[in-house]
Amino acid sequence: MTVQWIGRGARNPFATRFIRPGMIPPLDAEGHPVSVAALAARVPHGGFMALVGPHGSGKSNLLAALAAHLAQDAVVMQSRVRRARDVPGLLARIARLPVAAIACIDGWERLGALGRVAVRVVARCRGCDLVVTAHRPCGPVLARCMTTPSLLARVVAMLGPDDAVIGHDDVTAAYARHAGNVREALLDLYDLFEQRIRGSAAGVRT
């Protein structure tokens, strides 16, 4: 899908609309583009692969891009797990997949030990591949997601805020404040952007 937007006034480039998984092309730790095609070629048939990295390192974003690429040639199911009780629904969805489909699961650890075993068994029975995101290695690693200040700077440049509103120092400071969590840093920059364009008071957060 291609999007064209025509509007007026300053638009906060760090709104979730622009930073949610799938909206930013995947980048490596230094901010260089990642070859999603090369990653996709490493997904084995009937296998299990994990995208590993800490919170806010781009796992979900990379998974979304990978799923979109894989979907050109195969049936792909993408699912985000938030709690263990999502397991039955997830199992039902995998059970409905045709043979040789690919299940991309965001939040592998949230399935719980039993849920992970069940998902692996059902996927194996269906002959489906599993590509998951996890914070720690849990099997063959497809990619390790890491961040650097350069990566955040590159992402911010792609989002394209006015340099006069958000400067390089702001980006560096946001990265440091959130200890490398790019997602939190971007949301921090959202607040800073709003504050700068409105010249506002500190606000009352509840």
């Binding site: 979304a64 799923a67 979109a68 894989l70 979907a71 050109q72 195969a74 049936v75 792909v76 199911m77 993408q78 699912s79 985000r80 938030r82 999502d86 629904g89 039902a92 969805r93 409905r96 997949l97 045709p98 489909a101 991309c104």
Partner: peptide, 24 residues
């Protein structure tokens, strides 16, 4: 009864996915 949970989404091969659901 069940189906797409919030936060789940089909990727580019919507037609294949829809075909699978229709068959089910």
């Amino acid at each position: 009864f069940f189906g797409k949970k919030r936060g789940e989404r089909r990727t580019g091969s919507q037609r294949w996915g829809s075909f699978g659901e229709a068959a089910f």
